[in-house]
Design a protein around this nucleic acid. Structure first.
Lengths: 331, 331
DNA sequence: ACTCCTTAGGAAAGCGCTTTCCACTATAAT
DNA sequence: ATTATAGTGGAAAGCGCTTTCCTAAGGAGT
């Protein structure tokens, strides 16, 4: 491995001067710069980040804590897009991303590992917060995406408003018998959507039979199927259902079709997330779009700010949007 | 930050002994171990990985070089699953994953960055190899997934056989007029599939009109659409088309439907990849499944072996499988 | 009592860098 | 000529660890 010493020797300068050249210090002559850079090229020298981190105490590393319930990890249809957006923005500032092994959320072990790695900042993409560590005395700033509870320095969609948009749309179309396939209630976003749904229904003076609220669990296709089966068991079937996630919505549509009914003719379906597939289902899924790009970017901006010393804590709520496609029809 | 010195002081031992305890060296008494561990707990000490890496020359970091043509990065429907599988397997051995910023494939800049970070190994997930650096003198082992050319230490699907399975299936169903929507030919996998397709058609003595081979570009939905539009412009339309990727197949199906035709009644479609959505399209997509889990695992095993000093280079070809769903019918 | 092991623990060097502080030279100002 | 000033460059310390010796002490064997 070539080191700064090799460069010093070849260029005829001291390691101090080499280091100064490499770090754009002022007190170096053009001549020295030239000679040093020549040596660098000749030997194919690359500085050692560990050594640099050790003395500067800056790693240029951002830790990604990512845990989700579907069990698909990085391949998650929604979070992967958020992380990609986040990545695109922090890399403009030359940060690399570190994905920890054995990462099950921000627990003590994960937190220690992060400390061990000396990351400059952390983004937590996590929908639940069971064993979450106390972060008050964290040596690095942390930003949360889709956080479990209302907590400073987090960004998430306006989930309640999303539910309202969904219900309003359905009501506009003339629906009155509207059911809700919920996500697991311990998940922050699911809970918010439930609250938004109830409130919106209330604002339209629409009653919600108890059997119209069923859980689809952790937002999976299978969960959506099971929930829809329960919904279909109602004597008085809903004419529309607001589903808390697109994957569940796709599962629900499948069940409806298997029951010999049609979407949207017999039952209208509206999803949540607008994952990549949503526009390619048949019929294309009407849904509440979460702005994944913006969520990732906001999280990046927030973290970058904090790493620059900004201490103000705030929550960023990202707008959602109704995307009308083919899975809802007027009564 | 608490260091090994703080532990030494609190426990009453030297930093040497503390280090020995932390690294399970033999010559330490039970008493010393206990005292040291107590101090570690008390101070909440975490070793500094930069310092450790600097002296041991081992970073426990695996670099991920990932570049794809769709522009979706980590959210790529196929590669994300491969990477997730790879990740799951290397983390059993306590490696963390490093995603580099400004990573556009294994070019010189990326390579230097990898050297700078001192990674222990690298996995390259990349379908093209334009500016690829000379890796013969790499300081770390590298494994390729879906490599551009036949190169040692790589893993990829049996693409040719996949095409054969597709064609055979269609022929079994009675089809003779079979078209192919190709991927961009400079992409290794696309090229292999084209070759496999031609050979399979030949083995059945089936001619391929020139207009039956159209490129869908970089495997995108839009590319599939455009290709299918061209195919539909044929006087003598194909009764079936083998599509080189699922996203393109979905785009193609959409076009067929928009043209007032039906899949599979009028035209049978068979995809490639078996991405997560494939089973949820309407009709569900018959496709050639790539074993993403196995590809990721094989790459992990190969890299782990190399990091352990194994010098034998070999290519691992992962079997593919025909998944019959609803997008093909018998003539 | 003496030597010879074995075991436990520590001193010190060094991994590759940055950064502070000082020294030296050349030039400008007095 | 003398002093101040700017412009270059280097010595040395130190970031937090591991690892190679080396020493000291205790116990076994004769």
């Amino acid at each position: 491995m070539t080191t700064i010493y090799d460069i010093a020797e070849l260029s005829g300068y001291s390691i101090t001067t080499v280091s100064k050249v490499l770090n754009d210090y002022p007190n170096v002559s053009q001549k020295a710069k030239k000679k040093v850079m020549q040596a660098v090229d000749e030997l194919g020298y690359t500085p050692n980040s560990s050594a640099r981190t050790l003395v500067t105490n800056k790693s240029w590393l951002i830790g990604v804590v990512f845990s989700e319930n579907l069990g698909v990890g990085i391949a998650h249809p929604f979070f992967s897009e958020v992380i990609e957006s986040f990545k695109k923005h922090v890399e403009l500032y030359n940060f690399d991303l570190l994905f920890l092994s054995r990462n099950r959320g921000l627990e003590q072990e994960t937190f220690n590992h992060l400390k061990h790695r000396g990351v400059d900042g952390v983004v937590v993409v996590q929908a639940f917060g069971d064993n979450m560590v106390n972060i008050d005395e964290s040596p690095f700033p942390i930003v949360f995406i889709d956080l479990p509870v209302d907590r400073p320095s987090s960004v998430h969609s306006d989930n309640r408003h999303g539910s309202k948009l969904a219900v309003d749309h359905l009501v506009d179309l003339g629906h009155k018998k509207i059911a809700h396939i919920m996500g697991e209630q311990t998940v922050f976003a699911a809970d918010e959507r439930i609250k938004g749904f109830k409130k919106a229904m209330e604002s339209h003076n629409l009653a919600i039979p108890e059997t119209y609220m069923v859980s689809g669990g952790y937002f999976s296709y299978e969960g959506g199927r099971e929930a829809m089966i329960k919904l279909l068991a109602n004597q008085d079937k809903p004419t529309a259902v607001v589903v808390s996630g697109d994957m569940m919505a796709i599962g629900a549509m499948k069940v409806i079709e298997e029951a010999g009914l049609k979407v949207p003719d017999d039952i209208s379906i509206i999803g949540f997330d607008d994952i990549a597939i949503a526009k390619h289902t048949n019929p294309p899924l009407t849904t509440i779009k979460q702005d994944k790009e913006l969520i990732g970017r906001q999280a990046a901006i927030m973290l970058l700010d904090k790493m620059n010393g900004e201490t103000k804590q705030y929550t960023k709520v990202v707008p959602v949007q109704l995307i009308k496609r083919g899975s809802c029809r007027a009564l």
